[in-house]
Amino acid sequence: MPQVTWKGVITFGLVSVPVQLYAATEEHSGPTLHQTHAKDGSRIRLKRFCEAEGVEVPYGEVVRGYEAPDGRRVVLEESDLAELPLPSKKIIDVLAFVPADSIDPMMLARAYYVSTADKAPAKPYVLLRDALLESGQIAVTKVTMRTRESLAVLRVRGDALVLQTCLWPDEVRSAEGCAPDESVAVRPQELRMARSLMDTLSEDFDLSALHDEYQQALEQLIEAKLSGVETPHGEEPAATAGAEVIDLMAVLRSSVKAAKEVHGRGAAPAEAAPEGAAGTGAATTTTAKSAAKPAGKGGVKKGPAKKGATKAAASAGAEAPAKKATARRAAPRRAS
């Protein structure tokens, strides 16, 4: 079990739940990189100096302070901070119960597992957990940790309660100006193809199998440097299209095809755009012509069908009748 981060009480109404918090997550630190002198590779260390005395100050003599805009300074001792009149200092005060989707995920920050305190009764904990689980709600709370008061939510994960600190609403910046200004019309064919790509990429997806590839590559680079061997080099990233005008449908078709090949399902089915649809360009015409070729190469006799196809190639307006004629000729042979 990790080290206890905080001890206090959850209160909702007159119900009190003595609890303690444990960090629920840990970030991969990877190899620790130091500031180093490029000339000889020696370490560069930072030291704390007193401006007035010009001497190095031990860490034990360092406290927090504040300098006002007019130059006045105050020193804040740990005792000053400990005596701040905050009701949420040792209490996780439940303010309200709200639907789980009413909190913007942008506000969520650090997560902590909530455990019952030593020798505390388990029933109040279980009561709060089961009430949250049955209602599908989360509890909005306030808590003070490390001299900072935070908004937080209580929710259920498995059999445990989780406290997740949040940003205050005014700490989340507006997204104004981030979305494209111009009005863009997305055609139904493009949307269907995009959904097909989404479904294909999501097949057999296992989130738990993902890992930090940068940390792994960094460790390999350091090991190669220590061993005096050639350092590994990754492939150059493909150039992005940028502002270049592209055939979106063609790109989507290629993406779906590649994704299905990776998942072992073969090529994606062709999706023809309606005649006269804007934005398909030459790629749509080429696809339509290519699709007509297998019909001429099938079980159809050479001769009349071939002549009809030749006329269709000479005149774009006759392409549709030629296809119908080919289909009529092919039908009796397929039936025999």
Score class of each variant (00 low, 15 high):
residue 248 L to S: 13
residue 244 E to M: 07
residue 255 S to N: 08
residue 308 G to I: 08
residue 263 H to Q: 13
residue 292 A to G: 06
residue 321 P to H: 04
residue 302 K to N: 01
residue 293 K to C: 06
residue 286 T to P: 10
residue 242 G to H: 06
residue 269 P to Y: 01
residue 260 K to E: 06
residue 275 E to D: 13
residue 288 A to R: 09
residue 301 K to G: 13
residue 246 I to C: 10
residue 252 L to N: 00
residue 269 P to W: 06
residue 257 K to M: 11
residue 318 A to G: 11
residue 304 P to Q: 08
residue 277 A to T: 14
residue 276 G to H: 04
residue 288 A to N: 11
residue 303 G to E: 00
residue 258 A to V: 01
residue 261 E to C: 08
residue 227 S to C: 06
residue 260 K to G: 03
residue 302 K to Q: 07
residue 223 E to H: 05
residue 280 T to C: 12
residue 228 G to T: 00
residue 316 A to E: 14
residue 266 G to M: 05
residue 253 R to L: 10
residue 241 A to V: 15
residue 231 T to K: 13
residue 236 E to Q: 14
residue 240 T to Y: 05
residue 310 T to Q: 10
residue 312 A to Q: 04
residue 232 P to I: 04
residue 321 P to F: 02
residue 286 T to W: 12
residue 281 G to E: 09
residue 319 E to V: 12
residue 322 A to S: 02
residue 305 A to L: 09
residue 233 H to L: 15
residue 274 P to F: 04
residue 234 G to I: 02
residue 297 K to Q: 09
residue 286 T to V: 13
residue 312 A to E: 00
residue 260 K to M: 09
residue 314 A to I: 04
residue 281 G to S: 11
residue 311 K to W: 14
residue 226 L to R: 10
residue 275 E to Y: 11
residue 227 S to V: 08
residue 283 A to I: 12
residue 309 A to Q: 09
residue 317 G to Y: 10
residue 251 V to M: 12
residue 228 G to Y: 02
residue 312 A to I: 00
residue 239 A to Q: 06
residue 309 A to W: 05
residue 316 A to C: 06
residue 288 A to M: 10
residue 291 A to C: 02
residue 312 A to G: 10
residue 233 H to Y: 15
residue 292 A to Y: 06
residue 318 A to N: 09
residue 246 I to S: 14
residue 273 A to D: 06
residue 320 A to K: 07
residue 277 A to E: 11
residue 248 L to P: 03
residue 284 T to G: 12
residue 237 P to S: 03
residue 248 L to T: 09
residue 250 A to C: 05
residue 234 G to A: 07
residue 252 L to G: 01
residue 297 K to M: 12
residue 301 K to C: 08
residue 277 A to Y: 01
residue 266 G to T: 03
residue 248 L to N: 07
residue 320 A to P: 04
residue 294 P to Y: 03
residue 309 A to H: 03
residue 254 S to Q: 11
residue 296 G to T: 15
residue 257 K to R: 13
residue 265 R to T: 00
residue 290 S to K: 13
residue 314 A to V: 06
residue 279 G to R: 03
residue 289 K to G: 14
residue 258 A to L: 04
residue 247 D to W: 00
residue 313 A to K: 05
residue 253 R to T: 12
residue 233 H to V: 13
residue 256 V to Q: 02
residue 311 K to V: 10
residue 309 A to K: 08
residue 226 L to M: 14
residue 265 R to D: 00
residue 237 P to T: 03
residue 295 A to K: 08
residue 266 G to H: 02
residue 254 S to P: 08
residue 226 L to I: 14
residue 280 T to D: 09
